[in-house]
């Protein structure tokens, strides 16, 4: 198994290449799940924020499918769980503007 920080940056690099994001944040939350069955098998828990023009005109399911597709076999092996927010640049601008 790769070490955790390495795994986080590998995910970020893979998604950066596949989806040309204007903004990307990958958080490793594996430590929050230590001891739970999925964690014991070695897969990490990650939280993702990805902003990309590729999501324009796509519904949430299609967007997540793009992310899953880019990660391929990592789902279920290196990645046990992935929570994601997938936004277009316009949606992201909107959110950062209205956020307190």
């Amino acid at each position: 198994m790769r070490d955790l920080s390495d795994r986080r940056s590998a995910i970020e690099a893979t998604l950066a290449t596949a989806l040309s994001p204007t903004h990307i944040e990958v958080l490793d939350e594996s430590h929050l799940h230590a001891g739970h069955a999925g964690a014991a098998a070695g897969g990490g828990h990650f939280r993702l924020l990805l902003v990309s023009k590729r999501f324009e005109g796509q519904n949430p399911m299609a967007r997540q499918r793009l992310v899953y597709g880019a990660l391929g076999d990592w789902m279920g092996s290196e990645i046990h769980a992935l929570s994601m927010r997938t936004l277009t640049p316009e949606e992201w601008a909107e959110q950062t503007r209205t956020a307190p």
Binding site: Q64, Y68, R85
Partner: peptide
């Protein structure tokens, strides 16, 4: 569903998405 994660919700036979969606 060609969807790699659990949970998965179905309404009237149609896949709706996972937890985030």
């Amino acid at each position: 569903s060609s969807w790699p994660t659990i949970p998965q919700l179905y309404l009237d036979g149609e896949f709706q998405g996972g937890c985030d969606i």
